[in-house]
Every structure is written in C-alpha cells, then in structure tokens.
Design a protein around this nucleic acid. Structure first.
Length: 305
DNA sequence: TCTGGACCTAA
DNA sequence: TAGGTCCAG
C-alpha cells in the first residue's frame, strides 16, 4: 500500500522519525524499515513523497500508518509555533519532517521504565529480549519478529524470568507495574482524555515511573504534546542554549552533576512548556537529536563556557 | 524539599 | 558511563 504525501502541507521524513530515538522496535534492512506495531510487522520505506508499506500477518489501511506516525498533526503549524529562536530554527531546518510517533501506551510505559540509566542499544536489546520471551513470534520475509508482551504476560511471569531479559534492577519495577495494569487498577488509555497535570500525577504512582518516564509516556503515547521530558541530554541542551533564562548558580550547579533533583527537573521542564508553548514536546523532539550529533556537541560545549 | 548512594549490565 | 528512580537521613 501507499500513502501520497504533500511535503508542503504534510511534511514527513521517515528516516529522521525512526532514528530520533523515541522508538525501539525498528530496524533497517537494505532500503526497508521493519518494525513491530501492535500485532503487526510493518515493512516501510519512503521514496520522496511516497510512503510505501506492507503489513503482516494482516493488511491494514493507510489510517493505521497515519495514526502511528501522527500524520494527522499539522506539522507546519506546530513548527511555526515552536520556532522561537535560532537554536530551534536550526533544528527544524535540519530535521524537517521529523514527527513524534503515537505509540501504544502500555508498550511505551514498559519501554521507558526499562530506559532508565541505559543507552539506546541496550534498551533495544531489553525490549527485544522481553518480546522474544513473552511475545508472539511472527515469521515474515524469512525473518522472525516478536510482538510486545501483553500486561498479563509480564504480570504472570517470574521475577527471575524477567531479570534474564537483562533488565537488572528494572525487572522488579516492570513486574510490579505489569501487575497493577493487569489487575485493571490503572487505566492507561483513560489518561488520554485527562489533562496533562493530572495524568502525570497518576503515572507517577506507578513503580519505576518518575518525572522523566511519565513525561515520555504522556508525550509519546497519550497525545500530551506539551510534555517536555528532561533527560541528561535535554538538560545540557536547555542549560546550554537558554542559560540566560536561569540563574547562573542554578546552571552551574545543575550542569556540574549527572543527576537532577525533582525540583530541578520541574524548573527545566516547566521552562520548556512555558517557552515553547502547547507543542513543547515537539520542540524537545527536534532539539534532542542535536545532542547526538558530534559537530553540534562541540558547539554546545563552547556554549556552556 | 534536598542530597547521597545503590541499583543491573553492557556498549 | 548509559535517555533515572527509589530510599534513607
């Protein structure tokens, strides 16, 4: 199947989107990206304005893909709203077409509980291990793929089994969170129509969910585009680019250590929401890849001095 | 509220 | 060290 894009009204860049670090279930083989979305393996590539895709074992319509990649977002409008200064503008020019994806909340929650204190390759590995062990195997194009486990699959697993997926101290948090969701005591999907502040408070009650994980789940799976997750990279970027908006002692103190307190997190995150507005999450998503590019890191370092 | 330290592995 | 969270003091 195919989706015809109009880059002036519906800009989209599959490559930027799948490489930006939000998603952990995608892999490129040759010209094609393969990923697992829900119960489906998705094979997709972009050729200029055409998005070509195939799903297995079932066929899905274009809306499935449009929903997943948030092609319903008015990206030109969003980008114009977050275009507040030269820093974001450079990011926008460089990564134009990058979109936040609309992940399934449960998978997003567990993924980001696992992401604590790990790099992306290790996170991908944990998710793959969990899926291999507790998910369903799908054979497609002579490769095996694995769906993400359901809440009940993890809730009824043993702690040791989960630990064997290389989760380390995250295993207990994943197991406990799974039990709560599996018992029906936490309605993840319901948070979609709850406002940001309240939804965040509720998420924070789950084991393994602190402010950063909560903001990621809200932004990446529950349509809270104002959420502004602050990890160590975003801390460096914001305090590098926008240090004038913070006290000098705050900047020095927070940049000088590896972790931040809840109060410091809130200071930086609420600055992001206030400064960039209702689509702050998109600003975060465009700024984030700057931290992973060598050339820009040098610029960031010099900016800090 | 804030601070320090533990926490599992592996790229 | 790595895309933090949790617990005690």
């Amino acid at each position: 199947m195919e989706i015809q894009l109009d880059q002036s009204t519906t800009p989209f860049d599959l490559e930027h989107t799948l490489r930006c670090g939000q998603l952990f279930q995608w892999e490129k083989r040759g010209d094609w990206w393969y990923g697992v979305v829900g119960e489906m393996v998705v094979k997709i590539r972009q050729i200029n304005d055409r998005l070509v895709f195939q799903t297995f074992p079932e066929e899905v319509d274009a809306d499935f893909i449009k929903n997943y990649f948030r092609l319903d977002d008015n990206l030109p409008l969003i980008l114009s709203k977050i275009d507040k200064d030269g820093h974001v503008r450079r990011a926008i020019q460089r990564f134009r077409g990058l979109r936040i994806s609309r992940q399934e909340p449960w998978e997003c929650l567990i993924s980001y509980i696992c992401a604590t204190y790990k790099n992306i390759p290790a996170i991908k590995n944990m998710i793959l291990n969990l899926s291999k062990r507790f998910g369903e195997k799908i054979n497609f194009n002579s490769h095996y793929f694995y769906t993400f486990p359901k809440p009940s699959d993890l809730a009824h697993a043993g702690l040791e089994e989960i630990k064997e997926c290389k989760l380390g101290f995250r295993a207990e948090r994943v197991l406990e969170a799974s039990k709560i969701v599996d018992r029906g005591e936490f309605n993840l999907e319901g948070l979609r129509k709850t406002d940001y502040e309240k939804a965040k408070r509720e998420l924070l009650s789950l084991p393994g969910v602190g402010q950063k994980v909560a903001d990621c789940v809200l932004l990446f799976s529950l349509d809270k585009l104002e959420a502004f997750p602050v990890d160590i990279w975003m801390k460096r970027i914001i305090l590098g680019f926008y240090q004038n908006y913070f006290g000098a002692s705050f900047v020095e103190r927070v940049l000088g250590k590896s972790s931040i307190t809840p109060g410091e997190y809130e200071t930086i995150s609420s600055f992001g929401r206030r400064y960039f507005g209702e689509y702050a999450g998109y600003a975060q998503e465009y700024l984030f890849p700057l931290s992973r590019s060598q050339g820009k890191l040098v610029a960031l370092d010099s900016c800090n001095r």
